[in-house]
Structure formats: C-alpha cells, structure tokens
Amino acid sequence: MSFVFYILATLTLAGALAAVMLKNTVHCALALTVAFAGLALLFLNLDAQFAGFAQILVYIGAVAILVVFAILLTKGSETPKDGVFSRTWLAGLAIAAAVFAVLGWAVLNSAWALPHETAVPEVTVKQIGDALVGRYVLPLEIVAVLLTAAMIGAVIVAMHEKERTK
C-alpha cells in the first residue's frame, strides 16, 4: 500500500463524511465535490486515466453543479429547526454499520483469494474507443437512448407545475 493511496483514501472518506454530516446543505455539496475529486484521483492512481477524467467531467463538472442548483432552487440551504437528521437516524446508522461490518468481514476473509496482478495495464484512449464502438456498441446505444430519455424526462418533470399554474 503506497503512501499516496492513504492520502487519497483519507481525502475521499473525509469529503464523503463531511458531505453527509454537515448541517448547511451548500457545505455538503462542496464536501461532495471534494469526495468526487478524491475518487477521480483514486481512479488515476489505479492507472484508469479515462475513467478518472470521465469522473472529473461528469461528477465535478455536471452532477455537483446540478446538486448546487437544486439546493439553491429549493431553499435547501436553510437549516430546518428540528435538525438535519431524521427521527429514525439511529436505525439508519445501525444498518449502515452492519453493512460495513459484513463487507469488511468479507473482504478481510477473502484477502488471500483476491487477484493481485502487478503489471500496469497499458490502455490507450484509442483502445477504449475501439471497444466502445466494437464489442460494447449495444450498451453504448442503450446509454445514449437512456441519456436522451432522462434529459427529456427531467425537463418535463421540472417544467410541469409552471405550465399548470399559468
């Protein structure tokens, strides 16, 4: 385990923890951006350059901006008077802890069986493009249809009420 990995893991987990713990929703969105950036750096650390840059473009460039827009449009930055956590927060925390216990137990118990190839994979963007329009062309088309449908759907869902009140 390299020193860089520990730094990036700490950064990502601290960002994620802040994103779900902070009171002000705008601060949560900023912490979420830190977590996404840490994940992108972890991808780069894993020699997955294309996925790392896609993560930066899609998550930091689009999803984080969308979240900020949604927070500002819904006045979500005001802290509610009865707290930011739901009434059943203890049960939720217990479920999350149980899930982590099971996942951690499974990983630590199967550590001997995990693959550990040391050779750095040589993957160029050209290879990824060839794979996208070759072997993975059907998923690519389906994702294109899904993104179109989601874009139209999001616009229709967000526009509906305004038309009705006119």
């Binding site: 385990m1 390299s2 990995f5 893991a9 990502t12 987990l13 994620a16 923890l17 994103a19 779900v20 929703t25 977590a35 994940l39 972890l42 894993l46 979240v67 949604a70 927070i71 819904t74 979500g76 509610p80 707290g83 930011v84 956590f85 739901s86 059943t88 927060w89 049960a91 939720g92 925390l93 479920i95 999350a96 802890a97 899930v99 982590f100 996942l103 951690g104 990983v107 630590l108 550590a111 995990l114 693959p115 550990h116």
Partner: peptide, 27 residues
C-alpha cells in the same frame, strides 16, 4: 492493494448508505 481499495469502497458505500438513511433533506 486490492483489499485496501475494497475496504475504502466499503467505507464509502456505508457512509453513503448512512447519509441516505439518516438525512431529512431529499437532496
């Protein structure tokens, strides 16, 4: 190294799950 990444991913998943289950705000 793979076990380290899997542990980090498990922690991240649990943090996300805790957030999804305990926060009031839909966003």
């Amino acid at each position: 190294p793979l076990a380290g990444f899997l542990i980090v991913a498990a922690l991240l998943f649990s943090i996300g799950l805790a957030g999804a289950l305990t926060r009031r705000n839909a966003i």
